[in-house]
Amino acid sequence: MIDRALIGLEMEPFTVTAEAGRLRFFARAIGETNPVFVDEAAARAAGHPGLPLPPTFLFSMELDGPEPFAFFHRLGIDFARLLHGEQSFTHHRTAHAGETLTFTARVADIYDKKGGALEFVVRETKVTDAAGAAVADLTTVLVIRNG
């Protein structure tokens, strides 16, 4: 069982820069062909300062911290028993290639169901820009199968 004393734990904030090449690679991997996400000229023509981050990409940036799996290791989560239960994004504005964003994650909750056979970890992450303004809020629900 995961130590319930970890509820409320804040991870060390880290910064990640969204790179245009990485956005194109991501677009190719998911089959995104909308030129706004792969072609700088199309992005600018649509009013963007650069390639916009596509939906869900902030989750990937959160995995790009200095220790990508620090969160999982800190909680002692075993990948072989890990499932992604839920994921949500609330956007305050669109972020673009070249921006450096700060990710601050905390353990919002840990609970279990079925007599401990399933444990749930709720992680909430605030994403802010270089000026400290809110860009997005992410909530991740992880499921650990103990059965």
Binding site: I30, H48, P55, T56, G85, Q87, T139
Partner: peptide, 27 residues
């Protein structure tokens, strides 16, 4: 997250990215 990103294409095919306020899924 691959499946969620592909579902995101359903949105980006019809909605400008700057209009997206929230996106959530349960797997």
């Amino acid at each position: 997250m691959l499946v969620m990103a592909e579902l995101g294409r359903l949105l980006t095919a019809h909605v400008p990215i700057e209009a997206l306020r929230a996106f959530s899924t349960r797997f």
